[in-house]
């Protein structure tokens, strides 16, 4: 496995499948994520795209900014439509391909969760990537169940920012005992690519959760996207880890443990936070990290 990954990583840097002219905003983490994932997967990939930012990013009718087949589908159907594509490929034979369901956090944590759960329970052979920008960004920054605690959105306006923490999507997927689940970051492209290549090798349902900063939605400077993605990891807000068969947890990068304040202060969606609230977030992040470390030690 390790050799296979290293071999694939060596060719990773040369090939590009995403082309210029896409419609992403400046500094879009989701565009970066697609670029890295496609580089890792190569041209033997079929993308299934539910309603999300990427519906727009890929380009309007007659254009596409990825060099692989794309099936646009309804909001809540990334997983189920991808399972249909996979079933067809199995029955028809033909060349081997990775079926990549590529959904945002709304399409994954919220409206598409039921279909995803069904696919995971049946262990359909697809790679499901959730690029998580932590709100409904395409429709103009409405809260999703991936929106973090106390974040501002247009549906959690001040003085009542989001009262509940983010849903633990990785735990939900792990509970389905799928062969492989991992978190990844656009600030750690080698780690991301290694995980994608690993997922390509596994049979069954694979889930990769990528945090993708969103300058318009997070109210952050567009040149800070990679830095923010890195800070999310280094502050333990978004640790990088893998879960095999739902039980074997492995932390893939040991974060420096920078205070969450450093991450939050670059985003205006958190600019209303008082010291006490930052402390509350820090505490939750520390507790989640401790739980993860325990699982990884097990």
């Amino acid at each position: 496995m390790k050799e296979l990954i290293e071999k694939d990583l060596s060719i990773l840097r040369q090939e590009e499948y995403m082309s210029p002219g896409h419609l992403a905003c400046q500094g879009c983490g989701a565009a970066l994520a697609m670029r890295h994932v496609l580089k890792a997967l190569g041209p033997e990939t079929i993308v299934v795209l539910p309603a999300c930012c990427w519906t727009v990013i890929n380009g309007p009718f007659a254009y596409s900014s990825v060099g692989v087949p794309v099936l646009h589908t309804a909001f809540e159907t990334a997983a189920s439509a991808a399972a249909g594509v996979r079933a067809a490929l199995e029955v028809l034979g033909g060349p081997e391909a990775t079926v990549l369901a590529w959904a945002g956090d709304g399409g994954t944590f919220d409206i598409g969760l039921q279909a995803l759960s069904g696919v995971a329970e049946r262990d359909e052979d697809i790679l499901y990537v959730c690029y998580d920008n932590e709100a409904y960004m395409n429709t103009g920054i409405q809260r999703s169940s991936a929106t973090p605690l106390l974040a501002w959105t247009t549906t959690t306006p001040l003085p009542r920012p989001k009262p509940r923490p983010k849903k633990d999507m990785m735990a939900i997927m792990a509970a389905h005992r799928i062969p492989y689940a991992a978190t990844a970051s656009v600030a750690f492209p080698e780690d991301l690519a290694a995980k994608v290549i690993k997922a390509k090798i596994y049979r069954g349902t694979k889930f990769i959760h990528i945090l993708t900063p969103c300058p318009p939605g997070w109210k952050s400077p567009s040149e800070q996207t990679v830095r923010l993605a890195r800070l999310a990891v280094e502050t333990k807000v978004f640790p990088l880890y893998e879960v095999e068969e739902g039980v074997r947890h492995r932390i893939s990068y040991m974060p420096k443990g920078i205070p969450v304040r450093e991450y939050l202060r670059l985003q205006d969606r958190f600019s209303h936070l008082q010291e006490e609230e930052i402390g509350r977030i820090q505490k939750l992040v520390d507790q989640a990290w401790e739980r993860l470390v325990k699982k990884a030690l097990w």
Binding site: I46, T77, S80, A81, A83, G84, V85, R86, A88, L89
Partner: peptide
């Protein structure tokens, strides 16, 4: 999901 899967399968 039944129809979504049929859509994916038919498109493929």
């Amino acid at each position: 999901s039944a129809l979504a899967s049929c859509i994916g399968a038919s498109a493929a």
